[in-house]
Amino acid sequence: MHRLRSTFLRSVLQACLALGLAVATQSEAVAQRAPASAVLDAPSVTAAYILNFIRFTEWPAAAGGKPVPATPEAPYVIGVAGNRELLDALIQITEGQRVRGHPLHVINVKSTDDLPACHVAYLAPPGGPYNDTTLRIPDALQALQGIPVLTFSTAPGFTRSGGVVQLFQEGQHLRFEIAADTARSLGLTIHSRLLALARPAPAP
């Protein structure tokens, strides 16, 4: 009984293999028709957004004790709180990249004490089972009050509670809302090109 079944399965498999090899060797045309299935992972795209934002944002010269990178070799510091995948993606995308001559350094933010040293901070929404940070967004924004840090989050209502950029998904696309007034009050100059691309986030 088992033997029968296995023989049958083996025949099916061999047929599949034969078919597979036939198609595989048949023509390049088949191969070319098959599009490279572009699986775009959200952290990589988010990291690319953040990189673009750094390129199109200017930090105030030494404003609020939080200078632009002081020396040419001093990096822009990007802090990530509570998102391991984005941390990996940012480390990957910033490797070898420079913005206005400065390198980029990505850090894992574990507490509010780490935040003032950042130029950019990504704050994961709390409460998710995968968010291992002990940092809460209101505490983080409190610690950053008046300090020119370009903050990102996907938390609903982020821009209304003192955050600068809120990321959200609209269908298959990643979109963002910018709290232009907040940015201005912090002394961050966000390029008009980014402001033009921003759109209002859906109500929480």
Partner: peptide
């Protein structure tokens, strides 16, 4: 895999990035 994707993504401008389909996850 990421290095390759990352290099490509790093060179894209935001307008192009916004056209990229990201897996819907809601």
């Amino acid at each position: 895999a990421f290095a390759e994707t990352a290099d490509k993504l790093a060179s894209l401008e935001l307008e192009k990035l916004m056209e990229l389909p990201v897996e819907t996850v809601s």
